[in-house]
Structure formats: structure tokens, C-alpha cells
Amino acid sequence: MQETQLQRVQEAVARCRDLPGALLPMLHAIQDDLGYVPPEAVPTIAKALALSRAEVHGVISFYHHFRSAPPGRHVIQVCRAEACQSIGAERLVARLRERLGIDFHGTTADGAVSLEAVYCLGNCACAPAVMVDGALRGRVTEAVLDEIIDTAALVDEHVGVAGGAR
């Protein structure tokens, strides 16, 4: 973890520590800012909330949302729940695996895209659904996916790789 990251963790900790039930808001604040919760942040969090490191780690690992490693510059979340399955989600999953050459929880070698599974995005009447860097997409076809992947690559080229993940 870099110096500036540690500073940002400390800021998030200071902002949240006095909330009732502070741990989840704190972890969210850190991940919203850095894209993940660096393992090196755990002692700082534990100290601020008078918890053991094991307790903090236990919470981080319990929840699917929290990441302990930085994601790619773009995060594609594919819904794998029933409504999306009923209308082709698994075709999308196959397409993504093929195009990106990675599986769920993976990040492409160039660090451009991470692939994650989600179970319902509340877009079940416009299924299948995916979320790209926090933007919801519905009635997604393989062609739309291709466009999403190509755009992600293009955007990176133009802005010289800025932060993509929410």
C-alpha cells in the first residue's frame, strides 16, 4: 500500500469511526475510494474500532462485495440469478469468458477488466442484465457485450488509463 493510500484509509476511518455499527460504512468508504480494502488497512481499522484483526478480516471475507486486491480498471458484473438465466445469462457468461480469457474473480492480464458474478441487479424484467463500472445495462446481447468490451479498451487508450472502477 502506498503512502497516499494509507492516508486515504486513515481519512475514511476518521470519517466513519463514530457511526453506530461503523465497520461496514468504513469498509465501503475505503473500497469506494480505493477500489478495494487493502489488507494493510486492517490493523488501522481494527485499532480504531477496538476490534481484533481477525474480527475485521472475518467481516471482510464474509461479504462478497469487498475485495482484498485491486480490481481491473473496469469491472463487469454479470447477473447469474434465475430471471437472467431464463433468458440467456449463461450465453453472456460464455461470451465474456471467451472474449476476456478469464473466469469470475479474474482480471485480464493487462489489468483492463475484472469479471464478477452478481445475483440479481433488480433489472429482471429487462434481463439479462450486467453492470459495468456501476452503470446498469439491460436486454444485453452478445453484440452489446462486445461493444462494452471494445469501448472499455478504447476508453483506456484515449484517457491513458484512468481509474474506471467505482
Binding site: 434465475e82 430471471a83 445475483y119 440479481c120 433488480g122 429482471c124 424484467a125
Partner: peptide, 11 residues
């Protein structure tokens, strides 16, 4: 928390 697939009324 609306976790059920096929539900979006809360949302």
C-alpha cells in the same frame, strides 16, 4: 436488501 431474483418492487 431485495435479494430475490425476479424482484424489483423495492427498488
Amino acid at each position: 436488501d431485495e435479494g430475490d431474483s425476479g424482484t424489483f418492487s423495492d427498488r
